[in-house]
Amino acid sequence: MKGLSPSTTRAGRAWVAVGTSFVLSGSAAAHAQAQAWPSRPIRMIVASPPAGPSDILARLLGPQLTLAWGQTVLIDNRAGANGMIAAELTAKSDPDGHTILLANAGFVINTSLYKKVPYDPLREFVPISLAMSVPNILVVHPSVPARSVAELVAYAKAKPGQLAVASAGSGSSGHLALELFQQLSGVSMIHVPFKGGGPALADVMAGQTQALFSIAVAAMPQIRAGRVRALGVTSAKRLASASEIPTVAESGFPNYEVNGWFGFVAPVKTPRSIVARLNTDIVRALRLPELQDRLAEQGAEIIGGTPEAFGAYLKSEQAKWEKVIRQAGIKVE
C-alpha cells in the first residue's frame, strides 16, 4: 500500500477540510497568506470524473507539484454539467492560490451553448497556463469508401443528409468539430449524439454510424487495429505520434482547427505573485520527460505557456466557437 498518501484519500480530504476552516477563520488578510503560500494543501478541482481525460493529467501532475510546493495537491473531481459545476465552485473559492481549476475546452464554450452559465470564464478567473492540447481524429468505419477527407466530402455530397456522424454528446468537442467541418465544407450530415466518447466510438466500430470526430487517445488503438480508418486530425499540425495521418486543414480546409485542451486557471483575485509561482512550477512539471512520454503516447501535445498567452487563447477560443455555434444554431439551453 505504499504511495497511499493519507491526504489524497477522501477521508484525508475531510480532515484537511477541517484544518482548512481553522486556518481561514483564524488567519488575517489574503495578503498575509500570499507571503506564506502555500500554507496548506492545494486543491486542484478537476472537471471530469476519476480516470477521465483531465483527471489522468491531474493525477500525473499531482505528485510532481506536491514535491515542488511541499504541500499535498488534492485532486477534487467535480464532474457534471459540462464542467460548469467545477468552474462555479472554483470561482467561489478563496482566491489565495490554494484552489486551482484544471479547466477544459468547455470552459469557454459553455457561455455560447447554455443560456445560464453560473460563471464568467474571462472575468472571474485568472489564467495560469495552458497544459495540454488534445486534438480529435476524424475516423470512419472501414465500409465507408472514402480514404481521404476530400473523398468523404464528395461521398457525403452525393448522399446529402444520409451519413450518420456520432459524437460524445451535444456540445462536445467532437460535435463542434463536426459543425465546423460542415460549415467549411458545405456538406450536411446527421449528428448522432451519444452519452460519452466510448459508446460513440463503439457504434462507429460496429458500423451503425459511419463517422466520428474522436479524441486521439481513444481512437488511436482502434485505428491501429484497423477497426476504424483515420482520415484527418483536427489540429493545425500533424500528430507527433501518428504523423502518417494528414490534418483536415491540409486536406483542403486551411481554416479548420479544433483542439480539445486542458489548462489551469484560478479565481480572479488570486495574487499575481502566486499565479506566477503556480505557472513556473506547473510548466516545469509539464516539461518532465516521463510526463511528456506518457501523454504523447496518447496523441496529446504538452503545452506549458505564460498566463498571458493562455488568456489570449481563452479569448480567441470563446470568440471562435461563439460564431460557429451561432451559425449552426446549436442550443443546449
Binding site: P49, P50, A51, G196, A202, M205, P221, R294, E297, Q298
Partner: peptide, 30 residues
Amino acid sequence: PTLTLGIPGSGTMALMLGAMMIQGIAPGPQ
C-alpha cells in the same frame, strides 16, 4: 468489451481503462 475492444460498458469499466492508461497501457484491441 473492456479488455478485448477497449470500450467501457459502465462507469467502473471506464475507471479500469483509466487505470490502464495511467499505467501507460493504451486500452484497445491490441
